[in-house]
Write a protein that binds this DNA or RNA. Structure first.
Lengths: 218, 218
DNA sequence: CGCCGATATATCAGCCCGATATAACAGTTT
DNA sequence: AAACTGTTATATCGGGCTGATATATCGGCG
């Protein structure tokens, strides 16, 4: 069960690797920096945090108020604090639950990042976004797998449409054409990344590898 | 509840508008013609059909064996048929449940297609794929809404990154750059579609509308 | 002081995905 | 004819995601 890597958990761990944060901050940070790529809803983020906590991958750490937070209104603050902290982990003044990544979490992050079974568009983009935490061998494999998958998808679509035993609605052709272009663009981009990766991986016995590539292309 | 339009139900209705089909055929047809755009799993398709049936949007019609299916092995076929048809709608020889669209379903299809609350990438692509069933006014509105949404998204992302109070992981920038390019490409495509739509909508009093457009752009 | 918007956490129904189970049938092999 | 392999066909389940909603605190502003 749960064969594939959970993208959201991967992102949470990746962000917590940089610094401790609470849920709200995580979402803000996510949409600010990765907003074009992915988007988390409350209904997915908090359960994800709960899951990670249950696994021991993250844990609630002490409150970290951005500004010292000087209410100092006598005993009132204390009362609230007691009420709020009833039987839970440490929280901040505003009932914040600040999470930190554990060693287990770091290990899980690496494992998820290197898990090949991920295939969909979003999962690929997210893994690539954190690809500096992979070694270049894995990175290359991921890129090639993605390239092969897109190629296969496009070929399969073309095959199906050539032996078209049905009439396509006029606008369908329009949309398909655009998606095909997008795929080509993605493909070119990935090929470029592969090339860069290969050239930056040059080792002493480069000649053998190059000749291998040439042979493959004949 | 269920404010947004269910893309899968929309597609099912759209395909059933062309001809009666059973579930397996629907999925095959979907991946064959729309495979680049969307993808349905068994765990979503059959419940969707059940929902549509419950709403009265589709109903099981008589079996429609592609080839007359001549078992004719005496009473055996009859026995199986009796066993299989226990208390259900009409089915074909191989326990097929062939669905047809009803008047309610046709109305629902139109309503879903013209429902503006849809916003995500996939939903847009699918509605556009069936856009020949919309009148050109609605089509135009959908295209413009989509354009505005992408524009807003890109601007928002740029705004967030300019006041970057955080350090981006190196590969994140790479991915973001590509997504920005994709957005530009999508935008150009949509603008093109809008232009085409506008020019093919020319009516007697065109001059007024054109001058309106010009005014807007000043 | 009260109001409002931003901060902060949580839950729920409904839906989707991936996996799995079950079985009839078709074609080929043995 | 039995045994196999692959395709056709329907269905269900756990776990995860979305969009909506509820609740409450806090900072600032008039």
């Amino acid at each position: 069960m749960a064969t594939g890597t959970n993208s959201l958990e991967l992102v949470v761990l990746g962000l917590l690797k940089e610094q401790d944060m609470h849920g709200y901050e995580l979402k803000k940070r996510m949409t600010e920096s990765l907003g074009l790529i992915m988007h988390a809803s409350w209904g997915s983020l908090y359960p994800a945090l709960a899951r990670l906590e249950a696994k021991g991958a993250v844990k609630a750490v002490e409150a970290r108020p951005a500004i010292p937070n000087i209410p100092m209104t006598g005993s009132l603050g204390g009362e609230r604090a007691v009420f709020r902290l009833s039987g839970e982990g440490p929280r901040g003044s505003r009932n914040k639950k600040v999470y930190g990544i554990t060693d287990i979490g770091s290990a899980l992050f690496t494992a998820m990042l290197n898990n090949d079974s991920e295939i969909d568009e979003k999962g690929f983009a997210i893994r690539l976004a954190f690809a500096n935490h992979m070694d270049s061998e894995k990175r290359l494999k991921m890129l090639r797998d993605r390239r092969d998958l897109i190629l296969e998808r496009v070929k399969s679509s073309r095959r199906n449409l050539e032996k078209k035993r049905f009439t396509l609605e006029p606008y369908v052709e329009l949309v398909l054409e655009h998606f095909r272009l997008n795929n080509s663009s993605d493909l070119a981009w990935i090929e470029e990344l592969i090339a860069k990766e290969e050239s930056s991986m040059q080792t002493p016995e480069t000649d053998l590898m190059v000749s291998q590539e040439v042979q493959d292309n004949l």
